[in-house]
Amino acid sequence: MRSTLSLKDRFSRWLPRLVLSPSLVAIIVGVYLFIAWTGWISLSSSKMVPKYDFVGLEQYIRLWSTPRWETAVANLFVFTVLFLAITIAIGLLIAILLDQQIRAEGFLRAVYLYPMALSFIVTGTAWKWILNPDLGVEKVVNDLGWTGFVFDWITRPEYAIYCVVIAAVWQSTGFAMAIFLAGLRGIDTSIIKAAQIEGASLPRIYLNIIVPMLRPAFLSVIVLLSYISIKSFDLVLALTGGGPGNSTEMPSTFMFSATFRRNQMGVGAASAMMMLMTVAAIIIPYLYSELKEARNEH
């Protein structure tokens, strides 16, 4: 029966796959093959130019014995925890407040969200200026008469990472808010009415009923913010340049400077692979569960 298919019909059956294939090739090469390539370099002795030998895990051992990398990992941990906690807290608060039939909601939402449209370089530049102790916020507060006020975190190695957190929170809160708000809007308002009739107060309703219902939104926000924090590179570079000293070094900046500034391509590749594995460990289960759910819905 199949053999009677005309050549034209057979062509048109394959046409969609044919049209899709260049994209697929681009993704396979640009993502998967390149990852494999980086993985290979991370197992080689490459320094300034790629070398295709095999030295086992030497570069990884070197990486983990570099104090600078340890700083980067510790910073990433501190940064991610604070960044997620604060962004989620403020984002959720704003979303809940905005969900109370607010006048000018559209305008307010736009205000909270606009930093998301900016480049991290712009954000870093702006906050570098604001956090500048000689001329920025510290001086404004001092001029207001509160002369003892000190806010010089950006110049102090032990505190500079918190400056990165502040700027990153400022930029990303709107994103968390948008997802939480979408989640809140998806909740049947009759649930709130039912709880009110039972005598629950509004804060209690949110705490005990609504927030637990936002589980999928929480999942999305946590995953996507973690991803942002792992790859955050531009912000650190623009805000602190990794300094003072290398106190705000992050894996992303470490990878960049190892590869392009210090001629340690092998170590750079190893650090890139570490970043990739971290992201993959978070993202792949997430994508898997999302796709599975999506399939169940159809």
Binding site: L33, F34, F256, T259, S271, A272, M273
Partner: peptide
């Protein structure tokens, strides 16, 4: 994470 593909 684009760091993983920059080199190649």
């Amino acid at each position: 994470p684009f760091q993983a593909v920059i080199l190649p």
